[in-house]
């Protein structure tokens, strides 16, 4: 896995640094310009012009670094959504393989997401006994003896995914 949170912080820091660099550059260039107007080109003005130039180069480098960081964040996000999309496909394929009805698939998915029987019943506006019965059929079809075993069937797939990693092409 890559580290988007670290990159996000990095991007914010770069933005703040760039803002300060640009403010400094604007002041400096203004100073060089007014010095040039009053004094002309002397060692002092030349040196200040060099500092201003260095500031501008620094701004360019920071901005390019910012661009790289944002692109890295985007790639990590895309890999992540690809991974979760792939996992969703795995889930759907399994549900279809077990021959779950749409209602059973719904209940099974809510169970995977960690919802209690009572919560699923409320979400589906169904009786708890109905949900329990559907869940029993889901377990029977999948061959799982319990809620924990049912979830464990998918943990295996997730671990496969993590080993493959988002960078290895999935």
């Amino acid at each position: 896995m890559s580290h988007p949170p670290g990159d996000l912080r990095r991007a914010s820091l770069l933005a703040a640094a760039l803002a300060l660099q640009t403010l400094a550059a604007v002041f400096f260039i203004g100073d060089v310009a007014s010095d040039y107007r009053w004094i002309g080109f002397d060692p002092h003005t030349t040196f200040e012009a060099m500092v201003a130039l260095a500031l501008i180069i620094g701004i360019g480098i920071s901005a390019l670094e910012m661009r790289r960081t944002l692109l890295r964040i985007r790639r990590a996000e895309e890999a992540l959504s690809l991974a979760s999309g792939a996992f969703a496909e795995v889930i759907e394929a399994r549900f279809a393989g077990w021959g779950l009805t749409p209602a059973e698939a719904d209940v099974a998915l809510f169970t995977l997401k960690g919802l209690e029987t009572s919560e699923i019943a409320a979400l589906r506006s169904a009786a708890e006994s109905t949900v329990r019965a559907q869940l029993t059929r889901v377990f029977a079809k999948s061959g799982a003896g319990s809620r924990a075993q049912f979830v464990a069937l998918f943990v295996e797939d997730l671990l496969e995914n993590a080993r493959a990693g988002p960078d290895s092409g999935l």
Partner: peptide, 21 residues
């Protein structure tokens, strides 16, 4: 059947755009 993947948020503006804005 509900969407298997949580409907994700949209990407907002990048930090530099937000700061300058």
């Amino acid at each position: 059947m509900p969407a298997p993947v949580r409907p994700g948020g949209r990407r907002g503006w990048d930090p530099l755009v937000r700061l300058t804005h």
